[in-house]
Design a protein around this nucleic acid. Structure first.
Lengths: 345, 345
DNA sequence: CAGCTGGATGGGAGCGCTCCCAAACTTGAT
DNA sequence: ATCAAGTTTGGGAGCGCTCCCATCCAGCTG
C-alpha cells in the first residue's frame, strides 16, 4: 500500500515527506531547499526551513546517497606499517588538517588502514563498490598500484608526498629541498665550515630532496661537493648512530651535521657524546621533522618543520575541488617548510 | 516503467538483480547468500557465489543501509584538543587497534574530531540522523554530555578511559593503579628509600589512580604516608620541572621519583640536571606512557606502558558485541599495564 | 496415493531521497 | 485583455537492497 508514504521514518525520525506536509509544500520543494537550489521563492524557503527546525529534521544519508549516486564520504588510506612508524604526530596532524577542512562540509571522513599490499589493491574495488566520493592517499610507495588503479576507475584522489620529481598524480607535498637548504644555510651562517649530512634512504623521493637541498646550499656558498661528508642512512636512529661514527672517523674535522630526520639526529647525538664531542660546541646538529624527540633532546634539537596539518587541509581542499569541479586547479602543491631553531646549533 | 529493473547499476557496476539473473535465481536468494542465511541449498549457494565472482559484484552500501536500516559504520569521536595534545602516538595506536578489529568485519570506521563542546553535542543528533551503528568515545571529560546523550538515544557506545571509579558507561581502560604500583615497587626493589611522585591533575581519574597506586605500593612496603613527597603537577613538562625543584628543596634526601607522565619526567630530569643530581646515580626516575620521549631521554627513561592498541581492539570488540548482541558481556574492561625498564632506574 | 509438513525460492513492497517533467502560476509586452 | 516566456511547484519514477509472504517442491505419514 502506497499509503505508508506519510508516517515518520521507520525509527521515528521525521522524513522529507513529513517536513513537506508540515510546510504545506511538496517533497521536491523541500529537497530543493535542503540542497540550496535557487529555484525556490523566499516565502517558501522560509516556511520549509521553519518546518525543518520544528521537526528537527536531519536528512537520511543512505537514502540520499542511493538516490543521488554519491556518498558524501571520502576515505583516508594509510598503509598499516606507516601508521605505526610515522614520525609521531604526523598521522594525527594530517587527520586534524583533513578533518578541519571537512568540518564545514557534509563530508564524512572514512579511515582505512590497509595492512597488506593485497588489501590495498582490493581497496580500489571497495572504493568503487561502496562509493566513496574521493580518496586521500598517505605515504605512497613506488610500487603501489593504488594511485593508478584509482585513476583508471575515475575516482578523484589526492596523495600526500610525491614518488618522484615529476609526479603526475595530484598531490600535496612540502618543500624538502628548501627545508634542507634552510638547515644548511643556517649552519653555514653560524660559521660552520665542515657540514656533513646523514641522509634517508635515497629511493624515497623526500630523502633524495633533502640531500639535494643540502648540496645546493653548500654549492651556493661556494663549497665543493664532497662525498666523504655524506652518509646514507635509512631514517632510523641506529643508522644515525652508525653514520655519525663513520663520518667522524672519515672526517674528524666535521663541525656540523644535517640529519634528514630527528630520529637519526638522536642517534648521531649519541655517537657524538660517545666520541666526546659537545653539541653545539664542537659539532652543531640539525634534524628534520620537528618531532617531540627534537624538543626533548639535550640540547633541544634545531629542526626543519613540515606543515603537516596544512598539508592535510590542502589535500582535503584539492580533493573537494576535484570532486565537485571535475578538475582541481592546483593538482600539484608544494608547501613551504620552516626552520625551528633550538640549542643544538 | 518498471522495466529498468534489469540493467547494470547506474554507474555500470553489477547489481543484485544482475547476479540473480546470471545465477538463474531470484533476488531474494542472492540476498540470502550474501547475508549468509542458512536457508539456501548448497547447489544454489554455489551457483550464486560463482555469479558473484564472475561479475565482480560488490553490494551497494547505501542501498543496503537504506533497506536494512543499519549503516555498517561506527564512529570514533575525538575532541579536537586531545588529538593535538595526545601523548604522541596514542591517537594513532587507538585507531590502529580499532581498525585491526574492524578489518574482519564489514564495518567502516568514521572519524570525527569535534572542535567545540557544542559540536560535540550536535554530534549525537548527527549520529542518530545519519545512522551510525555505534560510537567509540575517546578522552571523555567529566562535563561531557555526549555519553549520556548517546545512552538516551539508545546508540551503542563504548568509551576509552573512565571518568570515575564507578563509571557506569561501557568502557575500556588500563590499570593505572597497578601501573603506578609496578613503578614504585620497581624503585623500592632497586633499593631506593625515599620515593617521591609528581602527579597529574587530580580531577582526572587516571591521574588520581596513578597517585593511588603510588601510595598503595609504599604502604605495602611499610612506608608511611608522607605528603612532602607528593607534588601535584598537570602532565606538562613545565609542571615536572617545577615539581622536581620544589621536591628537591623540601626533601633533599629524595633518591627516586615516579612521574605520572613521561613529559613531566622530562621536566624533572632537567631540574635534576640543574641541581647537579645524576640519574640514576643520585635519583632514579620512572615515567608513565612509554612515549618516544622516554626512549630518547638521556638516560632512556623507565616507564609504564599502556596497551593502547589493545584498548582500541577491546573497544571495537565490545562495541560490536553491544551492537549485534544487544548487550555486551564485558561492559567494563580494565587492561593491564606493563613496566618498561630502561637506564633511568 | 492423497494429505501434510517443512525447507527452499521468487518477487512485491518499500526504505527516504533526488531527478526531472509537466502543471500552475507570474510577469511583461502587445 | 491576450499570449509568450519565464519561474515556481508538485509528485511519479526509480536508486539497489532487505524483508517477508506466498508459492513450490520433496519427503513422509497413514
Amino acid at each position: 500500500m502506497a499509503v505508508g508514504r506519510r508516517g515518520l521514518g521507520r525509527d521515528g525520525r521525521p522524513t522529507l515527506e513529513q517536513v513537506a506536509a508540515r510546510a504545506g509544500v511538496g517533497r521536491g520543494t523541500v529537497s530543493r531547499v535542503i540542497n540550496g537550489s535557487p529555484r525556490v521563492s523566499d516565502r517558501t524557503r522560509a516556511a520549509v526551513e521553519a518546518a525543518i527546525a520544528d521537526l528537527g529534521y536531519v536528512p537520511h544519508r543512505a537514502a540520499r546517497a542511493l538516490a543521488a549516486n554519491r556518498t558524501d564520504a571520502i576515505a583516508l588510506v594509510v598503509p598499516e606499517p606507516e601508521a605505526r612508524l610515522f614520525a609521531e604526530p604526523y598521522f594525527s596532524a594530517i587527520i586534524r588538517g583533513v578533518s578541519a577542512e571537512l568540518a564545514d562540509t557534509d563530508y564524512q571522513l572514512l579511515l582505512t588502514l590497509s595492512r597488506t599490499p593485497k588489501e590495498r589493491q582490493r581497496f580500489a574495488q571497495y572504493a568503487a563498490g561502496n562509493r566513496v566520493d574521493g580518496v586521500l592517499l598517505v605515504s605512497v610507495h613506488g610500487e603501489d598500484p593504488l594511485p593508478e588503479l584509482l585513476g583508471q576507475l575515475g575516482i578523484p584522489a589526492v596523495m600526500n608526498g610525491r614518488r618522484s620529481a615529476d609526479e603526475p598524480f595530484p598531490h600535496v607535498d612540502c618543500d624538502n629541498v628548501a627545508g634542507a637548504q634552510l638547515a644548511v644555510e643556517h649552519l653555514l651562517g653560524r660559521g660552520r665550515r665542515v657540514v656533513a649530512t646523514i641522509t634517508g634512504p635515497l629511493d624515497m623521493y623526500a630523502a633524495w630532496c633533502r640531500l639535494a637541498g643540502y648540496r645546493e646550499a653548500l654549492e651556493a656558498a661556494g663549497h665543493e661537493d664532497d662525498d666523504s661528508l655524506v652518509w646514507r642512512g635509512d631514517f632510523t636512529e641506529e643508522s644515525g648512530y652508525h653514520g655519525m661514527r663513520e663520518l667522524l672517523e672519515r672526517r674528524p674535522d666535521i663541525d656540523a651535521v644535517f640529519c634528514a630526520s630527528d630520529l637519526m639526529a638522536a642517534g648521531a647525538r649519541r655517537a657524538l657524546r660517545e666520541a666526546g664531542r659537545t653539541v653545539p660546541g664542537d659539532v652543531a646538529l640539525v634534524g628534520f621533522d620537528d618531532s617531540a624527540i627534537a624538543r626533548h633532546m639535550d640540547p633541544p634539537l634545531t629542526s626543519v618543520r613540515q606543515p603537516i596539518e596544512g598539508m592535510g587541509r590542502a589535500m582535503a581542499r584539492a580533493l573537494l575541488a576535484e570532486i565537485d569541479e571535475g578538475m582541481p586547479i592546483h593538482r600539484h602543491q608544494v608547501l613551504p617548510t620552516e626552520l625551528v631553531r633550538r640549542g643544538s646549533s
